[in-house]
């Protein structure tokens, strides 16, 4: 893989706000590996999940982490934020949380006799929404709107969110009767849904060793900056996706639609392609191959699939695996 090519520089940047040029694929891959190595200093195990989180950031996606409490969801988000040297905010969702608690409010300043906008926690590069399913739907939707639009509207004024903007939401898989389950339409807005799972015994032992004394997160140094991540994101966006791969992705989506009550939406197919682009960059490739699609599909597509209205949601994974098994690669 020595001859990774540079994405065509003549491509018009899709986001006028950014003035910087895209990194080369190799540079972007190097940055990514630096970040991942840094994060793995803190987080024990879960190398795939760490990679998936970072590729989602590169692919302009948001992540839903669903797991039992205490497996390191928050720690993962924090370490990535710390590695990038970007702003990081955390919102603990509770049943009494209001939308303005997330987006921010206009506060009347006695001195200047004006309303001033007080930014909510959503104004950060990486936002950790903890236990998002504990808040009522109205509050959830405030966050979800920000995710989709990358902007916040308060009292008629629209404010852009900082770039990059990535939400890492966690969902508590236990205590389901005290939660508001995310509607499918909102789950669809997360690019990926990840499960961390428990560490192995060796990993957990290693983890214990690390937390003795100073917690490694405290000494974590950033290895890159927001600017570089933005340029890497441009690299990812420009990764070549040729027709055979596009067809392959659509055939996979098509398959899920044929084999489930509710299949993957076109938004899901787009997300799949973007995630595959990011993965290609991490592998130092300027083009997507079917392997990328296959690697990303389970985490990108599963949560968008419903087999039946009331059935267990986990079955979506099986449908996607079946699709990968069945749909031929050209």
């Amino acid at each position: 893989m020595t001859d990774a090519n540079t994405p065509d520089a003549s491509h018009q940047p899709s986001r006028p706000a950014t003035t910087t040029d895209a990194l080369t694929v190799d540079q972007a891959a190097q940055v990514s590996h630096d970040v991942l190595a840094n994060v793995e200093d803190v987080i024990v195990g879960h190398p795939d999940e760490i990679e998936h989180v970072f590729t989602a950031i590169l692919a302009r996606g948001h992540i839903l982490l669903e797991d039992v409490p205490g497996v390191g969801k928050t720690m993962l988000a924090r370490s990535i934020a710390a590695s990038i040297d970007c702003s990081f905010k955390r919102v603990q969702f509770t049943p009494d949380l209001l939308p303005s608690d997330i987006t921010g409010v206009n506060v009347f300043n006695q001195k200047t006799r004006e309303f001033e906008f007080q930014e909510g926690p959503v104004f950060a590069n990486i936002v950790l929404g903890d236990e998002i399913n504990r808040a009522p739907p109205k509050t959830q939707s405030a966050l979800l709107e920000a995710m989709e639009e990358e902007q916040v509207t308060v009292d008629g004024t629209t404010r852009k969110l900082p770039q990059p903007f990535t939400v890492i939401a966690t969902q508590n898989a236990v205590e389901p009767n005290r939660t508001y389950e995310l509607p499918l339409a909102e789950v669809d807005r997360f690019m990926k849904k990840l499960n961390l799972g428990y560490p192995s015994q060796a990993e957990e032992s290693e983890m214990l060793a690390r937390v003795v004394g100073d917690h490694p997160i405290d000494s974590l140094e950033p290895v890159t900056d927001v600017e570089t991540v933005q340029r890497a994101r441009r690299t990812v966006a420009e990764v070549t996706v040729k027709e055979p791969v596009r067809n392959y992705a659509t055939r996979i989506s098509e398959f899920t639609r044929e084999h489930a009550k509710l299949g993957v939406s076109p938004r899901g197919t787009i997300a799949l392609l973007r995630a595959a682009q990011a993965r290609a960059v991490l592998r130092g490739r300027g083009y997507v191959i079917p392997d990328d699609i296959q690697a990303e599909a389970p985490r990108v597509l599963s949560h968008r699939i419903r087999l039946s209205a009331s059935g267990p949601r986990d079955r979506g994974v099986q449908v996607v695996e079946e699709a990968i098994e069945t749909v031929p690669v050209e």
Partner: peptide, 11 residues
Amino acid sequence: VELHEKAVYGP
């Protein structure tokens, strides 16, 4: 196969 991927999916 690496060259194949490059030819088919890449530039």
